[in-house]
Design a protein around this nucleic acid. Structure first.
Lengths: 215, 215
DNA sequence: CCAAACCAATCAATCGTTTGATTAGTTTTG
DNA sequence: CAAAACTAATCAAACGATTGATTGGTTTGG
């Protein structure tokens, strides 16, 4: 059946995504992936052409979910610049499932000097999110919501960097916070709300000099 | 001569550090490293025992320079909490030489599943810096310099995360900033001062609700 | 029956590592 | 002092293991 084939390919991609993000592209072997997925090794090449093709397929499956991330918040005229920013933060934090190893995958491969044809594509996608935020900042400056002398580019680095730090260094983050960050319950009930609150307060105080942190 | 031997080992370590951080541990081959270093392949095992031993040696050479990073700023009673924090920021930013690939190395291997007994050692070292900052924050809260309701742990994530983001994603950062972040001149003359200013303003507004950003 | 799906066996290439020989410099010995 | 013994450094070559990829044939489903 066609359904089964898709399910099987999807299962392989699931396993590949996990193994790649645990061991990196070079560290993961096709035998390991096929073994854990319970399929013959030749199937990987049969379905995806090559190891690189498999890696690429892992990405392309996720790309769509990434692109929906930027749901044109910036173009909504009805809400203020700050509310847009708050919406973005909520969005990013909600999607910040540490177990989702895809983020680690991206960050690791982006930090490599090694050049994929993929690197440009990843860069391009990430830049869309960057530009989305930048637009909000610039709009906020223009309409007087935000201070004039802020540094939008570095703010973006702060937003993404803080999130990545938690994801990429879970050992450190767990030690810092006193709880295992990979614990789903803790993450969902305790950490995410705390992280949202913090991020909003941090940005608000920098952007607006507003002392009223209505909690 | 003994001096020559040390120089040679150091040269191998220099090359290994660069290659490892460009290609990752798995991506880098001993042949490549020995080739670029201009030494026979067997010398790597002769000097360092194994590829893993070489990787370990790269780390241990840097560890000392890392440990001097925390020069007991926190224990200086004569300066205010905020000044301590400013000093820390200056310190970190000054050492943030993007060309120094060691940071990338650490971040990449830390994001991997625990492959090394070394992971614990790296964690330990990084935690010292974390604790140093934490101490400053807590002291500042206690003596009234900082607001009571700040989130010290996530602030630390912001400080390190923002820095790491620039280092780990130089492509993105360069596109964002409109200049190649790896350009030494731009980095030193333009970026570092800008980054320091931004970081201090960001922290100050969050920590102290101080609107006087005396620029 | 035929094409698609699947698999065991195998490919050449590359991996990290080891080997045995050679060199050069130092120490020991007669 | 000079010959002999020893040591560390270096090298080309080869090792077994593993890599990603491919083959040729078998099974399966429509």
């Amino acid at each position: 059946m066609d359904k089964d084939k898709i399910d099987k390919k999807d299962h392989i991609l699931d396993v590949a995504e996990r193994v790649f993000s645990d061991l990196g592209f070079d560290g993961a072997s096709t035998r390991m992936i096929s073994g854990e997925a319970g399929v013959n090794m030749a199937m990987l090449n049969y379905y995806f052409g090559s190891k690189e093709g498999l890696f690429l397929a892992v990405f392309e499956r996720k790309i769509s979910s990434f692109q929906t991330l930027l749901q044109n918040i910036g173009n909504d005229e009805s809400i203020s610049s700050w509310d847009k920013l708050e919406k973005c933060i909520d969005n990013y934090v909600d999607r910040m499932i540490v177990n989702n190893c895809f983020q680690k995958l991206i960050n690791r491969e982006m930090s490599m000097g090694k050049r994929w044809d993929l690197t440009d594509k990843i860069t391009e996608i990430l830049m869309i999110n960057v530009m989305e935020l930048k637009k909000i900042f610039e709009e906020g400056i223009k309409n007087g919501s935000f201070r004039k002398d802020i540094d939008p580019e570095l703010m973006i680095a702060t937003i993404f960097g803080t999130k990545n730090y938690i994801i990429n260094a879970p050992h450190i983050a767990s030690l810092m916070l006193g709880h295992d960050i990979r614990d789903e319950k803790f993450l969902e009930e305790k950490f995410k709300p705390r992280f949202k609150t913090y991020m909003k307060q941090l940005l608000k105080s920098y952007l607006m000099n507003d002392n009223d942190y209505n909690k």
